[in-house]
């Protein structure tokens, strides 16, 4: 599956970053660039992971970087609909409590 990222910004200023494909050492720099763009001047970011079939540590590291970047401006940073496989990697990293997660197994606190 080809890797792709799109950004949709709503009237509230919240951006939805929709990720499609596999997030690894090759593709995570592009995701980070998109997260930085989406966070610039906005109310926050929701990263839609429904289309992500695979994520590795560099992808998780990118999400951590996004969270930290959002924290600097007190912007919202949430993950949406991670697949069971992606959720499994987040659980392996013991970071599910760190992120606000919408859908696919229910919300968690952020």
């Amino acid at each position: 599956m080809t890797f792709d990222v799109s950004i949709e910004r709503g009237t509230s200023g919240l951006a939805v970053v929709r990720v499609l494909g596999e997030v690894d050492l090759d593709t995570s720099p592009r995701l980070l660039g998109n997260l930085q763009d989406a966070l610039r001047g906005g109310a926050g970011v929701v990263v839609d992971l429904a289309g992500v079939g695979y994520i590795d540590s560099s992808g998780v590291a990118t999400l951590i970087q996004g969270l930290k970047l959002a924290g600097k401006t007190k912007a919202r940073f949430a993950l949406r609909d991670p697949s069971p496989r992606v959720r499994g990697v987040l659980e392996l990293s013991r970071l599910t409590d760190l992120f606000e997660i919408e859908g696919a197994g229910g919300p968690t606190g952020g």
């Binding site: 590795d56 540590s57 560099s58 998780v60 590291a61 990118t62 970087q65 990697v89 990293s93």
Partner: peptide, 10 residues
């Protein structure tokens, strides 16, 4: 909680 070293931990 930092980005580096996660892969080796996995």
């Amino acid at each position: 909680i930092r980005p580096g070293g996660l892969g080796t931990a996995f």
